[in-house]
């Protein structure tokens, strides 16, 4: 269903954002609470989300990745350090950095179409250009038949696609996706990977993708940033040079992919061990999953 819809591109609508943008996270720390309750979630964290690349960040669950997103999205401010976008510090949320959160945030009280049109309408853009773009995107994400349905009437995969469309209509300079395919069953997950990779390959905007799934990370990423356990830091960056378009088989059959996977697993395992000895429940889960995969 997903790949089929990509062929049906109507009059070429420009989805590529005007400028290429990059985000620099420079020596950022985030501490929650104060006094004896202070908890340092991120410590001296530095990395760059390079422009026109798909950067994937992977780390043990509960390692503060979501906090980083809050900071980059501008919902919270770092305790120290600085996050800049194209050289300017980030001061608050903005439509140049759109976030797709873990849980579906489609408004249940709006139809698919109204959800997609929400951003433009909120900004008072309701011209022909925008409505055409909305129709184009509806077709592109394969939901033209579900235009007037409410989110509860869509499957999990459809909801995620509707959400992608709702973000893309705003032509964000940077798309931030926080474990967007979590909770989908394996079949729809793999379909969504291919689907999302296709979307990315079409316009090559700057994308920042957070995950805990190694296969997902390797399949999607241009650059892979591996995070440490709490307090979070960027530990290692791997350039994933597997040629695009990639196939799902690549992540099992491709020798380069397997080498990367081994490297990532070793690093993540070390981090998971640290948090395991720190008594983290999430890390224990990860370890269990990891040992199953390794067999």
């Amino acid at each position: 269903m997903s790949t089929m819809n990509l062929e049906t591109a109507k009059p070429k609508v420009e989805l590529r954002s005007q400028n290429s943008s990059e985000i620099v996270v420079n020596n950022v720390s985030k501490v929650y609470g104060g006094g004896p309750f202070a908890k340092e979630v991120i410590k001296d964290c530095s990395f760059t989300i390079e422009s026109n690349k798909l950067t994937v960040m992977i780390g043990p669950s509960g390692c503060g990745k979501s906090t980083l997103i809050q900071l980059i999205a501008g919902f919270e401010t770092p305790t120290s350090g600085e996050i800049t976008m194209n050289g300017k510090p980030i001061t608050g949320p903005g439509k140049d950095r759109l976030v797709l959160f873990q849980e579906s945030a489609l408004f249940p009280w709006m139809t698919t179409y109204d959800n997609i049109m929400y951003g433009p309408r909120a900004r008072g853009e309701t011209g022909k250009e925008v409505t055409e773009l909305a129709d184009f995107l509806l077709t592109k994400v394969g939901l033209e038949a579900f235009r007037d349905k409410y989110p509860a009437q869509l499957s999990g995969g459809m909801q995620r696609r509707a959400e992608l469309a709702r973000a893309m209509i705003n032509k964000p300079e940077i798309m931030i996706l926080d474990e967007p395919f979590r909770g989908l069953d394996n079949m729809s997950k793999e379909l969504m990977w291919e689907y999302y990779a296709n979307l990315y390959e079409e316009d090559r905007n700057t994308n920042f993708f957070i995950t805990t799934d190694i296969d997902e990370a390797i399949f999607l990423a241009d650059r892979l940033i591996i995070m440490t356990n709490l307090p979070t830091q960027a530990r290692h960056v791997i350039e994933i040079d597997i040629p695009r378009p990639r196939k799902i088989e690549d992540i099992f059959a491709n020798q380069r992919a397997n080498d990367i996977k081994k490297e990532v697993m070793t690093l993540l395992h070390e981090e998971a061990m640290k948090s395991f000895s720190g008594g983290s429940k999430a890390a224990a889960d990860f370890l269990e999953a990891y040992s199953k995969r390794a067999e």
């Binding site: 959160f101 849980e103 900004r123």
Partner: peptide, 13 residues
């Protein structure tokens, strides 16, 4: 859910 208000703000509301 906070995700709805965050989404709205993110989309420019």
């Amino acid at each position: 859910d906070e995700s709805y208000t965050r989404a709205a703000r993110c989309l420019g509301a």
